[in-house]
Design a protein around this nucleic acid. Structure first.
Length: 558
RNA sequence: GCGGAUAUGGUGAAGUGGUAUCAUAGGAGGUUUCCAACCUUUUGUCGUGGGUUCAACUCCCGCUAUCCGCACCA
């Protein structure tokens, strides 16, 4: 086998271009860094993976699909924290105007300038005055954050509004929370999924499909009541051994079920989603031994996250993070709630209504007001805290420090019963976020097989049948004697069947056509030969073992 | 972003101061009753902008992109 041999990655990339899986975008203009086309073959593959992903999560039964805009107002991403965090700190030389990264300038003077905050960088820059690499001057402008999001203006001219092209799909689902909440009759838990594009203006996109400036992502935002008991059956994953890396531990093998029982995975829903993610990846053809779950270190996690896992896949570029499953707490909804003042709460009804009986004193507004004027508010608070046995007149110390004497005319008995049937809270969010491009890359990487055939490399794409770009290739053995007509009839029949992709190929020898089909992973090739003309039977060739079976044409056309 | 290398048909590569070669792939025709066969024929190329020159794919400079390190990486 030449599977791990030298140059495999180069041959794979060359094939992906030649066959139209993946190509540099805008190639006739020289290409554009970090931007890729899914070509004539890859386009179909991508859309099938997207659909498979949606179908997988919709199985939960309480999930809706959303599609939110990529163009997003500035304020949304400011509230979410992206404006602050997706940035590099830049400064410019006052003499020559050359822009430099502040942390880079300070590298000779500080052990770890990356870790500094903007103000610290600026203070250090202005005290040390490093030389400009371009002109050797030592005067620097204030440090500004240069954002890694693509910014844009929504609308034009003076009425234009600052915005960004979204760096993730999640924010649209958070800002849609009220309508999702209403859709689900105000009953948690529920979730929203979205498959779409995200954009990050990376400084250095690298490694083909691994770091892109425009990428396909798929996210689920699952909203839960943090106090509600969770009923999740994790027994489904009790037998699958998976490699884990937990906080502060070396690699070890366990199952999702056990990792949750051991308290390594903190939340049962996180465990469930890790299991569902594992199932999805394996269904897509990812080799199970090349999947591992890595838990974020405490200092690696975003401050609001309660638990966070990367699902990494081993491929030609090493271990690559392809999915993240994060328990984000109430951070996102709370942030948008604070920024807008709009309610992003859910209601939790008590099992039994809680009644509070008050039997004490309150103020008589008609007399307290004129008597105490500005202090009346503080008087009310103080009076309502007095025990029922209090006798008047009475001296009371207010929260302001003032001491007042209350006469009986200032107060009146306060007797009431308050009944509360529930309370409002901000739901917590558990978010599986998938990098679809990275997953597709690894599907291809794992499906790509090279065999030695008469000294040449013979390649077969052993993609899962559910997501292959082409389901059937239909060949006339020769394009004459009516074999071509019969093949075209079968091809047309396939094409009119919903969800089936068929490819007619009459060019070249039959062996060459099989080889072409193997290279893009067509599971079944159907050949019309002379016998077909007599008895309407055809040969069906299996991609993975080359075996041929003879079946009736009409059974295929149904 | 820094350092190094590279950029020639769809793909992979040679090569030269006088508009370019090979393999493979693609189209057409023929042959062949099933795994990249063969024959004929055909399509298509020097990343981009500028400079030097009678003449630049070739030399020089800029840009863009790619690859490898480093750095960065939600």
């Amino acid at each position: 086998m030449t599977d791990e041999g030298d140059g495999r990655l180069e041959r794979l990339n060359e094939m992906l271009k030649r066959r139209g899986f993946l190509l540099p975008a805008f190639g006739i203009y020289g290409g554009a860094k970090g931007l890729y086309d899914f070509g004539p073959v890859g386009g179909r593959l991508r859309s099938r993976v997207n659909q498979a992903w949606l179908d997988h999560w919709l199985q939960l039964g309480n999930i809706v699909e959303l599609s939110c805009p990529t163009v997003t107002p500035y304020e949304v991403l400011e509230a979410s924290g992206h404006v602050g965090e997706f940035s590099d700190f830049m400064t410019s030389c006052k003499a020559c105007d050359e822009a430099s990264r502040a942390d880079t300038l300070l590298e000779p003077h500080h052990p770890n300038p990356d870790a500094l905050k903007r103000d610290e960088l600026q203070a250090l820059l202005h005290s040390l005055n490093p030389e400009c690499p371009a002109c050797n001057a030592t005067e620097w402008s204030d440090v500004v954050a240069q954002n890694l999001m693509f910014n844009t203006t929504i609308g034009s001219g003076s009425s234009g509004r600052a915005g960004f092209i979204r760096p993730e799909t999640a924010q649209g689902m958070f800002t849609s929370f009220p309508s999702i909440y209403r859709h689900f009759r105000e009953r948690l838990p529920f979730g929203a999924v979205q498959v779409g594009k995200g954009y990050r203006n990376e400084i250095a996109p690298r490694q083909g499909m691994i770091r892109l400036r425009e990428f396909n992502m798929a996210e689920l935002e699952y909203f839960i009541d943090p106090e509600a008991p969770v009923h999740v059956d994790l027994s489904h994953w009790k037998d699958q051994n998976i490699t884990f890396i937990s906080q502060g531990t070396p690699e070890f093998s366990s199952t999702i079920t056990k990792a949750h029982d051991d308290g390594i995975i903190h939340h049962p829903t996180v465990a469930q989603f890790l299991g569902m993610t594992y199932d999805f990846l394996v269904n897509m053809g990812i080799i199970s031994s090349k999947i591992r779950f890595r838990q974020h270190e405490k200092d690696e996690m975003a401050h609001y996250a309660q638990d966070c896992w990367d699902i990494e896949i081993l491929g030609s570029y090493g271990w690559i993070e392809c999915v993240g499953v994060a328990h984000r707490g109430c951070y996102d909804l709370e942030s948008h709630h604070k920024a807008t003042g709009k309610s992003l709460h859910a209601r939790r009804e008590y099992a039994e209504p809680r009644t509070t009986t008050i039997d004490a004193w309150t103020i008589n507004g008609a007399t307290v007001g004129p008597t105490f004027k500005a202090l009346a508010g503080a008087v009310k608070v103080a009076v309502e805290e007095l025990p029922k046995e209090t006798e008047f007149p009475s001296q009371v110390t207010l929260s302001t420090g003032d001491v007042v004497t209350l006469e009986s005319q200032h107060v009146k008995p306060n007797q009431m019963t308050i009944k509360e049937t529930g309370e409002w809270f901000i739901p917590h969010v558990i978010e599986p976020a998938f990098g679809i491009d990275r997953i597709i890359w690894h599907m291809i990487d794992h499906a790509y097989h090279e065999n030695d055939k008469d000294g040449d490399v013979y390649t077969t794409m052993k993609l899962q049948h559910s997501i292959v770009p082409v389901d059937y290739a239909v060949y006339p053995l020769f394009e004459k004697d009516g074999m071509d007509d019969l093949a075209m009839e079968l091809h047309r029949s396939f094409c009119t069947t919903l969800g089936v992709v068929s490819m007619y190929d009459g060019s070249g020898s039959i062996g060459r056509r099989y080889a072409r089909a193997d290279e893009i992973g067509v599971p079944k090739c159907i050949t019309i030969d002379h016998q077909s003309l007599e008895d309407r039977t055809v040969t069906v060739r299996n991609r993975d073992n080359g075996e041929q079976t003879r079946v009736s044409l009409d059974s295929l056309m149904q």
